[in-house]
Design a protein around this nucleic acid. Structure first.
Length: 442
RNA sequence: CGGGGUGUAGCGCAGCCUGGUAGCGCAUCUGGUUUGGGACCAGAGGGUCGCAGGUUCAAAUCCUGCCACCCCGACCA
C-alpha cells in the first residue's frame, strides 16, 4: 500500500471535540470519522485494527468450543415484550417502526433473540450445553455518548450465550468464558483484572467485569498487585481446573469505586501490594440462571422432566477495545504509539527519503515491499515527498510497530530497521524478515 | 434529562462587543530551494459564516426560533 493513495486522512491539529488521547489519536491518524454523536465510520486504518482484534476474540471463542452464529441488528419487539424488557430497557433502546407500522428495535443486546432461537431448536438435555456467540453491531442510545468509540451509541461487540441443564453445568460454562477472556486480553497485550461485579439490567446473580489498567480509564479501581501473578497457562477445560482458577482470582481484592470499602481493602491487601489506579471495562460475563428461560419458556426434556435452561451471557466490546488499547499503549507526551504486532494495521512501514531528482530510494522501497509481501508481511510505503523527519514523526503517531528507513545510511541490500520509537540498526532484508516473522509467531 | 459552552474552508482558530459583504496557521495544488525527528520562499484554489425567519439601505456581526456538536453531572458494554 502506498500512503499517497490511501484513505488515511492524517491531521496535525487535534480536533477540539476529542478530550481523551485515544479519541484524539484515532481522529488524527484517520482511523475513524464521526458521523453523528456516538456514531462513527471506520476508515481503513481503524477498520484493519478492529478486524484483527475481532479475529483474536473469535479464535479464543472457538478454542473453548463456542459456535459462531450471526443474529440480525434489527429485532421485533414481540420477544422483548415476552421477557418484559421492552418496558424495562427504557430510553436506551432505539425503537423504530417498519412500513407495516410494526414495532421493531435496533438490538442493544441479544438475550431474547438467542433464547428464541434456542427454544425452537433444542429440545433435549442431551444437546446441552449449547454455547453460541456472534460478533455484531449493537445500538444503545446513551444519554451522553463521549470519548469517541469508548462510549458510543453504535458499537461492535462479541456477545456469547450459554444454555445448560443445571446451575453446576452453567457455572462450568461461565468459567470457560472466564478463562477464554483472560487469554483473549493477554493476546491483545492487556493486563485484564476480573472483578466481581453488579449484574445491572441484564440481571442475575453472578458476574465479573474484565477491567484493563489505563490511566485515563473511567472507573477507579482498587486491587492487589498479586492478582497479576495468577498463572492460568496450565488451566484445563475441566470443571475442577476451571473452578480452582476462578477461586484463585476471587480471593484477591479487586473492586471499582462504587464497591470500594477501605477497611476491607486494608485488611485484605498488604500495603506494598496495594494498587489504586484507573481502568476500562472491556468485557463482562454474567450468569443469570432461568431469568429469560422461564419468562420465554426455553426448556429441555430432562429425562422426562421439563427443565428451564440455565443461561449466561458474555460480552467483549470489540470496537471499544481499539480505543482501550490506545489508552493503555499510547504515550501522548512524546506522541508515540506502538500497536501489538498481531493487531497493528500494518506490520511495518517503509520510509524512503525521496528526492525529486532521485527516486532510487522509492524503487528500493518497492523491492523490499514485494519481498516482505511474499512472506506475508504487510507493509505500507510512505511515498509522499515530505521530508524524512516528517514521515518518522507521523508514523510514530500511527504506531505501526516496525519501521524501515531507506535513506543516506542505506546500502544496496542493507537498511535501517527497528521498532517504532526505538534506535535503528542496519540489517539486510532477510534479517528484517526474520525479526518480524519471529515476532508474529508469538 | 439538569447545568454550561461552541457552531466561520478538511483541521485548529481570529473577526461579532461597536453592522459596510470574510481573514490567519495547518492541510491541498503549482514552481523553486531543501531533505535524518512534523523544512523554507513565492504563488493558487477552496467558505450561500449551522438552519429559518426578523430588524436594516446593508447582517458572520443585532433580535427570535430551531438544529447540531462538545463539556460537567446523573446513567452505562
Amino acid at each position: 500500500m502506498f500512503l499517497s493513495k490511501s484513505l488515511i486522512p492524517i491531521l496535525k491539529n487535534i480536533p477540539s471535540e476529542a478530550k481523551i488521547k485515544s479519541h484524539q489519536l484515532m481522529l488524527r491518524t484517520g482511523m475513524i470519522k464521526q458521523s453523528s454523536a456516538g456514531i462513527y465510520s471506520w476508515l481503513p486504518l481503524g477498520f484493519k485494527v478492529m478486524k484483527k482484534i475481532e479475529s483474536i476474540v473469535r479464535e479464543e471463542q472457538d478454542n473453548i468450543g463456542v459456535q459462531e452464529i450471526l443474529m440480525p441488528t434489527i429485532q421485533s419487539s414481540e420477544i422483548w415484550k415476552e421477557s418484559g424488557r421492552y418496558n424495562d430497557y427504557g430510553e436506551e433502546m432505539l425503537r423504530i417502526k417498519d412500513r407495516q407500522n410494526r414495532e421493531m428495535l435496533y438490538g442493544p443486546t441479544n438475550e431474547e433473540l438467542v433464547t428464541e432461537i434456542f427454544r425452537n431448536s433444542i429440545k433435549s438435555y442431551k444437546s446441552l450445553p449449547q454455547l453460541v456467540y456472534h460478533i455484531q453491531w449493537k445500538f444503545r442510545d446513551e444519554l451522553r455518548p463521549r470519548f469517541g468509540v469508548m462510549r458510543c451509541r453504535e458499537f461492535y461487540m462479541k456477545d456469547a450465550y450459554s444454555f445448560d441443564v443445571d446451575m453446576d453445568e452453567a457455572i462450568y460454562s461461565y468459567n470457560k468464558f472466564f478463562l477464554s477472556y483472560l487469554k483473549t486480553f493477554k493476546r491483545l497485550e492487556l493486563s485484564a483484572i476480573p472483578m466481581a461485579a453488579d449484574t445491572g439490567p441484564i440481571g442475575g446473580n453472578l458476574s465479573h467485569e474484565f477491567i484493563i489498567i489505563a490511566e485515563t480509564g473511567e472507573s477507579k479501581i482498587y486491587t492487589d498487585k498479586k492478582i497479576f501473578d495468577v498463572d492460568y497457562s496450565e488451566t484445563k477445560i475441566s470443571k475442577d481446573s476451571l473452578s480452582s482458577l476462578r477461586n484463585k482470582y476471587d480471593t484477591f481484592y479487586a473492586v471499582t469505586d462504587e464497591k470500594f470499602n477501605k477497611k476491607e481493602f486494608d485488611n485484605k491487601v498488604i500495603e506494598e501490594n496495594k494498587l489504586i489506579t484507573k481502568g476500562i471495562e472491556v468485557g463482562h460475563i454474567f450468569y443469570f440462571g432461568d431469568k429469560y428461560s422461564k419468562t420465554m419458556n426455553a426448556s429441555v426434556d430432562n429425562k422426562g422432566k421439563k427443565e428451564y435452561v440455565k443461561m449466561g451471557s458474555y460480552g467483549v466490546g470489540v470496537s471499544r477495545l481499539v480505543a482501550a488499547i490506545i489508552e493503555a499503549k499510547y504515550d501522548d507526551k512524546i506522541e508515540l504509539m506502538k500497536w501489538p504486532i498481531n493487531i497493528a494495521p500494518y506490520h511495518c512501514v517503509i520510509l524512503p527519503q525521496i528526492n525529486k531528482n532521485d527516486k532510487s530510494n522509492l524503487e528500493k522501497s518497492i523491492n523490499i515491499y514485494n519481498k516482505l509481501k511474499s512472506k506475508n508481511i504487510d507493509c505500507i510505503i510512505d511515498d509522499t515527498d515530505e521530508t524524512l523527519s516528517s514521515k518518522v514523526k507521523k508514523f510514530n503517531l500511527i504506531g505501526i510497530p516496525y519501521q524501515i528507513i531507506i535513506g543516506k545510511n542505506s546500502g544496496q541490500n542493507n537498511f535501517e530497521f527497528g521498532g517504532v520509537g526505538e534506535n535503528l540498526s542496519v540489517y539486510n532484508v532477510e534479517k528484517i524478515e526474520n525479526i518480524i516473522l519471529e515476532e508474529l509467531k508469538n
